[in-house]
Amino acid sequence: MIRSLDDLNPTARAAAQKYLDAVAADLDAEFREPVLCDLRAHLNDHLAADATEADVQALIDEAGPVVTGQAETSASETFKHRLTNGFRLTDADARVASTWWNPTDDRLFLPRALGWGWDLNFGALAVRLGLIEPDAESVPFSSTPDSAFKLAAAVPVALAGATVLHYAVRGRSLPSSLPANWDVAGAPNRWTSKRQAMATDLATTVLPAAVATWAAYSGRPRPNRAGAIAASTAVASVGAFVTLWRSLGGGRHPWAGPSMLGVLTGSIGGLLLGLAKAGRAAEIERDVHHT
């Protein structure tokens, strides 16, 4: 037993101090002082003045790692994760799938897959509506057949086709300026040239359709494919709806904003539910009808 680490020889004291410094670096400020105080007392109680560096190391090994009992993620870590999670570029499509469709998580809103905020968890909504079981697939979309992805990609392709057809057929008869923005009452408050409106609408429907088609025929993991097609459908739905809204010209259309929201959620939710149901059916076919 020693009164303080100063009673040790220099090498043993250095080893003990190095251990305490390493522990201090890993501890939250809240716990640092009391834990270090207890550890110093532990070392003092168990070391003799003639203890060697090896004796100190043996005592440290016997003590094992210092655990503060913080099994749960701290609030600051959770906040930091939520702040940065939506901006990670890796696996963005898989993140979309696991956020927009997470039937085993009963929360209706989850931290956004892309950007800040919250996304609707269509999986939890479908479970609450009794449309599917929470564990219908072991991993969502992992059993969804390739044909279902190809069929799902047809949704943004159809929206892009409708937009192209709209401008091909009605393009000449549309006025030279079209609405570019609307107020809460659904009345245009900013206008743009027909050419610019057409370029924007074609870009926001044709590009997502191309991405969805590529995803459907790619060999990427199935959850990634589902995420890419769902995100593409979301963008294409908004693009197609805006095209329609522009063609209405001036005047108030208070139903348009809520309708767009309905089309957006309906298209994403319907598409993800369809893919999940196809996966469920494939699992049942595998387990029930092939055994």
Binding site: P103, T104, D105, D106, R107, P134, D135, S138, V139
Partner: peptide
Amino acid sequence: ISAGTVYPLLA
């Protein structure tokens, strides 16, 4: 224990 805890655990 709620369903929201059990299903993620089963997965």
